[in-house]
Simulated assay, not measured.
Amino acid sequence: MQGGISTAESAAHEQTGGDSSLSPETKSPRLSNTLVAIPAYNEEIGIGSTVLSVQKITKNVLVVDDGSSDATADIAREAGATVIEHEQNQGKGGAVQTIFDYAAGSDYKALVLIDGDGQHVPEEIPEVVHPVLNGHAEMVIGSRYIESETTETPLYRRVGQQTLDSLTIGSSGESLTDTQSGFRAFSVEAVEKISITTDGIGVESEMIDRASAADLEISEVPIDVRYDGVDGQTYNPLRHGLAVVVFILQLVRDKHPLVFFGAPGMLLFLFGTLYGLQGILVYQATGVFYPAKVLVAGFSTVIGVLGVFAGLILNQIANMITET
């Protein structure tokens, strides 16, 4: 059509926020205004093919090598990525913060994070970044579970992920289906407002918490994930899950101290009171005195009262800090 654009080009133009050039290899929209970043640690097997696949979507590829002991950095560089190397391993949180610092000083309109192990499908980057480029969201999470109850995720991992989802949702107040997905997109505003404090693998939950605290719009889009042919996990799933649980509990402690300290304190107080009362009733009925009951009841009651008061005091301090 002379003097206009084709339907396919028009759709690409709308999807990419004005950048409608197409990759000749994939016929996918090219994203010259988007930075795709990959935090990587000992990912020499998958990093090269991941970078090459991303380059079919955009040439703006950054790899942060988090102190790998293998050839991750060299392979990523040879594949055409810009590479930042950490001299020592700083954890995924440290790698993501390096990416945010780099993106904050650039002119890109959006940042996309994907993992370097080949599980994510780079061809889906335009769909994930689309709400950001069109101003509909500041943070977008690629969800493996938003469209279907069936998933290729191994059962033991899905059970763990659902537990982490529940804890993260309870901490942040957001309604999300895949809080641990590493496939995400961010606006310039989100990059500037989200700061990472954890150096561990609780970074996915922390990003959600920080975005929620900054009143940033968070949305999800469906993605696929590839487990076949992927060379294992960087982290042991059990260790990963426990580390994230610990981090989420720390978030709850800092944001909701009344819940963290007060609720267990109240339970201990009730247990101590009822247990002590039961000991008194037994003594009245039989004349038998149980010192252990008295000690347990007294200890539980005292700790419970301290927990409730600690929760009340810390909650007041947290509210004062929030108001200032």
Rank of each mutant, 00 (worst) to 15 (best):
I146L: 15
E147T: 07
E147M: 14
S148G: 04
S148N: 15
E149I: 11
E149R: 07
E149S: 13
E149M: 11
T150Q: 15
T151Y: 13
T151V: 10
T153N: 06
T153W: 10
L155D: 12
G160T: 00
Q161S: 07
Q162W: 05
Q162N: 15
Q162T: 14
T163D: 08
D165L: 10
D165K: 03
S166H: 05
S166V: 14
L167D: 01
L167V: 13
L167C: 05
L167H: 03
I169W: 00
G170T: 04
S171G: 01
G173P: 12
G173C: 11
G173V: 12
S175F: 05
S175C: 11
L176Q: 00
L176V: 11
T177L: 12
T177Y: 05
T177N: 02
D178V: 02
D178C: 14
T179F: 07
G182P: 13
G182R: 04
F183A: 01
F183V: 09
R184C: 07
R184G: 08
A185I: 13
F186L: 13
S187M: 05
S187A: 03
V188K: 15
E189W: 12
E189G: 03
V191M: 04
E192L: 07
S195M: 12
S195V: 15
D199W: 15
D199F: 15
G200A: 11
G200R: 14
G200M: 14
I201L: 09
G202K: 04
V203P: 11
E204R: 01
E204G: 03
E204T: 12
E206K: 05
M207I: 13
M207H: 02
I208R: 00
I208Q: 02
D209G: 03
R210M: 10
A211L: 06
S212P: 09
S212H: 03
S212W: 02
A213V: 02
A213C: 05
A213S: 08
A213N: 07
D215C: 07
E217H: 05
E217R: 05
E217S: 09
I218H: 00
I218D: 01
S219Q: 11
E220N: 03
E220T: 04
E220S: 01
